[in-house]
Design a protein around this nucleic acid. Sequence first.
DNA 1: TTCCCGGCGG
DNA 2: CCGCCGGGAA
Length: 335
Amino acid sequence: MTDFALLISDWYRLNARELPWRSTKNAYFIWLSEVILQQTRVDQGMKYYLNLIENYPNLKQLADADEESILKLWQGLGYYSRARNLHKTAQQVRDEYQGEFPKTYSEIIQLKGIGPYTAAAISSFAFDLPHAVVDGNVYRILSRYYGIDEPIDSTQGKKTFQALADSLIPSSDPALFNQAIMEFGAMQCIPNNPNCESCVLNQSCFSAFNSELIKKLPIKKGKTKVRKRYFHYLHIENKHEIALDQRTGKDVWEKLYEFPMIESTDESIPLIFADSAQLIYQTKHILSHQHIYAFFYTSDKSEIAGLDFKFVEKSHFEDYPIHRLMEKYLESNSK
DNA sequence: TTCCCGGCGG
DNA sequence: CCGCCGGGAA
């Protein structure tokens, strides 16, 4: 057994909360609790669990219930497909497994509403099978303890963490290890500001006391929610001068120079230069976190109400730092 | 008030 | 890879 497994199991023996579904080997109760605890915290799920087992003390009674009655007991918990799948699975176990919860991982994971996490949890907690659970807690602990920087929301990353967890889980009392690692994540190696001083893993943990690292792990690619923005640029120049403006504020291209610009919420030409400007170039400029729809207009006006800019000598234009979007426009314009 | 989080199914 | 949902953090 690894040091990691030893330390975390010892920690669990001393620090485990007493929860009703932890003191049973009844697969029905364990399944019910695990489905409730998907996307749900213990303190929120507890009363639903107690209420459900009181109303449906065994799997057959759940299977025989109306879907609507189950949904009523589920009310307020969210993710109602869990309740509907619960009912379907209860009926399936009643009809195809003679009411006896299946005892192998491969059978369990085929049931509705049961994915890799829940199948591993039931397999180990009810049947002592060595399938490692990998939930948000496990990603967090393993990435920090071993210093793993693979994104947990990629297919490859999920494989890496599952394989690592499966390699760590001991064949003797795998249930204890699974309980321990999740409890440890919930109580000790918490998402923000975990207390490394009081941690039993702090001598061997890759990230211990390194708050910068702890903040970064586990790494997520994230759903790059791209913001759409619409920039309308005015190209104004005379014989010797050209209009420029310096970007300010906490935004892209801070302090770089560009043509005077209006940002709008859509692609229609801003009213204040609609009458005098002529669209000559447009492009979509893609950054990691935003898509900028850029429109370049020419104008012979030397001032526009509401636009702030200065004229610079064309001979010095090259001295001003500009961003890639400006370059793209200038390249297109010189052709 | 908005942002972030999370197992599973489609 | 996104939508399901509600709670808690920011």
